[in-house]
Simulated scan of single mutants.
Amino acid sequence: MNAREIRAPKHGWIPKKERIWVIVAIVIAATFMLWELKGLLQLSSATLHSRQFEHTFKDFGSNARIGLFFVLAYYVLLRVIRLRTLNSLGNVKKWLATLLRFARRWHTPIAIIAIAFIILHAVAVFMHGFKFDFNNLSGLLALLVLLPVPFSGLFRYQRLDRKWHLRSGVAFAVLFLIHSFL
C-alpha cells in the first residue's frame, strides 16, 4: 500500500470543530428568513408603499450592517496583528490574538445570519418599489458581488479558492460601504 491509499478521506466541506455552529447559523438564518418572508407576503399594498415599511427594510439593512462589521473585523484584526510595530507590545498583541480567535470562530456563523438579513433587505426593497437611483443600484451591485463570497468560502475550507473569498469579500465590502454611507 502506498501513502495515498492509507490516508483517510476528508469528511465534509466544513471542518468538524466549526460544523455545529455553521449548521446552527444556517437553521437560525433559514427560520428567520422564512418567518419574515411570510410576514412580508401578508402585507397589503398600501403598507408596502408607506414610510413605515421603508423603516422596516432599512432595519433589515442596519442589522446586516452590524453583522458585516463583525465579519470584516476578522480581516482588520488579522492585518493589525501582523504589524511589526506590535512586536514590542506583548500584552497588546496577546489581547489582539484573543480577539482574533474570537472573530475567527464567529466569522462564518455571523456572516450566514448577516446574509439572511441582506436577502430580506433586498426582497423588501423590491416589494417597496425599486427605483433606479444611486443607492439602489449600488446595493444591487453589492448584492451581485456578494453571491460568490459564500461559495468561495466553502472552497476556502478546502484551500481551493485561490484567494477568491478574500478578493470578492473585499470587493463586496467596498460596494457595501458605498451603499451604506453614500
Rank of each mutant, 00 (worst) to 15 (best):
2 N>I: 09
4 R>C: 05
5 E>Y: 05
6 I>K: 14
6 I>S: 06
6 I>W: 07
7 R>A: 10
8 A>I: 13
9 P>C: 05
9 P>S: 05
12 G>P: 08
13 W>V: 02
14 I>W: 11
15 P>F: 10
18 E>N: 10
19 R>H: 10
21 W>F: 07
26 I>M: 07
26 I>S: 06
29 A>S: 06
29 A>V: 03
30 A>P: 05
30 A>N: 02
31 T>H: 00
36 E>G: 04
37 L>I: 06
41 L>S: 10
42 Q>S: 09
44 S>F: 04
45 S>Q: 11
46 A>M: 12
48 L>E: 08
48 L>A: 06
49 H>T: 11
52 Q>T: 12
57 F>E: 04
60 F>C: 03
62 S>G: 15
68 L>I: 05
71 V>K: 06
71 V>G: 01
75 Y>Q: 15
75 Y>T: 10
76 V>Q: 12
78 L>S: 13
79 R>N: 13
81 I>E: 03
82 R>D: 07
82 R>P: 02
86 L>I: 06
89 L>R: 15
90 G>N: 14
96 L>V: 12
98 T>A: 10
119 I>D: 09
120 L>Y: 04
121 H>I: 03
121 H>Y: 00
122 A>P: 02
122 A>Y: 00
124 A>Q: 08
124 A>H: 04
125 V>W: 13
126 F>V: 03
128 H>M: 02
128 H>A: 10
133 D>M: 11
137 L>T: 03
139 G>N: 07
144 L>V: 13
145 V>P: 03
146 L>Y: 06
148 P>H: 06
148 P>M: 05
149 V>S: 00
151 F>T: 00
153 G>E: 09
153 G>D: 02
160 L>E: 15
163 K>P: 01
165 H>K: 04
166 L>P: 07
167 R>F: 04
168 S>K: 07
170 V>Q: 14
171 A>W: 06
172 F>N: 01
175 L>N: 00
